[in-house]
C-alpha cells in the first residue's frame, strides 16, 4: 500500500517534471536577463529588466489600461478570425465538394493569395481610415487563406475508397458529408486553424502598430514615444502569451475531436 502510494507520487512527480521541462529554458533565460540588467551588462535604454517589466505590468493592470487594451485587441482578433475563417471554410468546403465551384473561384483565390496581405495596409488605410474596419479586414484576409487552402486540401485528400464504401452502403449526400468527408478533412482543417491563429496575431500587431487608437500595438507604440521600454517589452510578452493561449486552445479542440487519430491516443 505504502509502496504503491510512493510509486504513484513518484509517477506524478515525473509527470510534472516532464510537462515542466518545456518551461525550464525560458525560466533560465529570464533569470540570466535579470542578472545582466542588474549588473549593468544591458543598459536600461536597450532592454528593461524582467522586474521592471513586471512592475510595468502591475502599474498598467491597476490603472485598467492593460485589461482594456488586451480586451480591444482580443475582440478585434477574434472577430476578424471568425469572419475570415468562416468565409475560408465555406469556400474550402464548396471547392472541395464541387468541381464547378472550384473551376469558378480557385484560380482567382490563388492569385489573391500570392499578394502579401500586409502589403494592402496603405490601401486599407485609404479605404477605411484607422477605424475598426481596417483591422477587421486585414485579419480576416490573413486568416482566410490558411483555412481555405487546408480545408480544400483536407477534402481532396479524403480516402476515395471510404467515399465509395459510403455510397455502396446507401449513405445520402448529407450523411456522406458528415460521417465520411468532414471527419476525414478535419485533421487538415486543424492544421489550417493553427496557422490562421498565428497569422491572426501577426496581422493584428502590424495593423495596430501602424494605424490604431487603442489596443496592445497602440499601447506599445505610445510607450515608444515616451521611451517606456518596459511597457514595450511587456506588450511583446503579452502578444507571445496570447499567441500561445490561442495555440493551446486549438490543440485542445484537436485532442477532443481527433480522439480516433493514432497520434492522439494515449492508451
Amino acid at each position: 500500500m505504502m509502496k504503491s502510494t510512493g510509486q504513484s507520487l513518484l509517477h506524478s512527480g515525473a509527470a510534472i517534471l516532464r510537462n515542466g521541462t518545456g518551461w525550464l529554458l525560458p525560466a533560465l533565460i529570464v533569470l540570466a536577463w535579470e542578472i545582466a540588467a542588474r549588473t549593468g551588462l544591458i543598459s536600461p535604454n536597450v532592454m528593461a529588466a524582467p522586474s521592471a517589466v513586471a512592475e510595468a505590468f502591475w502599474r498598467l493592470l491597476l490603472s485598467g489600461e492593460l485589461v482594456r487594451n488586451i480586451g480591444v485587441s482580443t475582440a478585434r482578433a477574434l472577430s476578424g478570425f471568425v469572419i475570415g475563417g468562416s468565409i475560408g471554410l465555406v469556400f474550402g468546403l464548396a471547392n472541395g465538394l464541387s468541381g464547378l465551384s472550384r473551376n469558378l473561384t480557385d484560380t482567382t483565390l490563388q492569385m489573391v493569395r500570392n499578394i502579401p496581405h500586409l502589403a494592402l495596409i496603405p490601401l486599407v488605410i485609404l479605404w477605411f481610415g484607422i477605424d475598426e474596419e481596417a483591422k477587421l479586414f486585414l485579419v480576416a484576409l490573413g486568416v482566410f487563406f490558411p483555412i481555405y487552402v487546408n480545408t480544400l486540401l483536407g477534402i481532396q485528400s479524403v480516402d476515395p475508397q471510404l467515399v465509395e464504401m459510403g455510397r455502396v452502403y446507401g449513405m445520402s449526400r448529407a450523411t456522406l458529408f458528415f460521417r465520411v468527408i468532414l471527419p476525414g478533412a478535419l485533421p487538415a482543417i486543424f492544421v489550417g486553424l493553427r496557422y490562421a491563429l498565428g497569422i491572426m496575431w501577426l496581422t493584428l500587431i502590424v495593423a495596430e502598430t501602424i494605424a490604431a487608437s487603442s489596443g496592445l500595438g497602440y499601447m506599445a507604440m505610445q510607450a515608444r514615444e515616451f521611451l517606456l521600454i518596459d511597457v514595450v517589452v511587456l506588450s511583446i510578452l503579452i502578444y507571445a502569451l496570447l499567441g500561445k493561449l490561442a495555440d493551446s486552445f486549438a490543440r485542445l479542440l484537436e485532442r477532443l475531436t481527433l480522439q480516433w487519430h493514432p497520434a492522439f491516443q494515449t492508451a
Partner: peptide, 26 residues
C-alpha cells in the same frame, strides 16, 4: 447486395460498433 472489399475500409473516426452500424444506413 453488400460488398466486402479487399481492404476493410472502416471509418477511422468511428468506433467499431458505429462502423458496423454503417451497414444499417437507412
Amino acid at each position: 447486395t453488400r460488398i466486402m472489399f479487399q481492404e476493410p475500409r472502416l471509418l477511422p473516426w468511428a468506433r467499431i460498433a458505429k462502423n458496423v452500424e454503417v451497414g444499417l444506413t437507412g
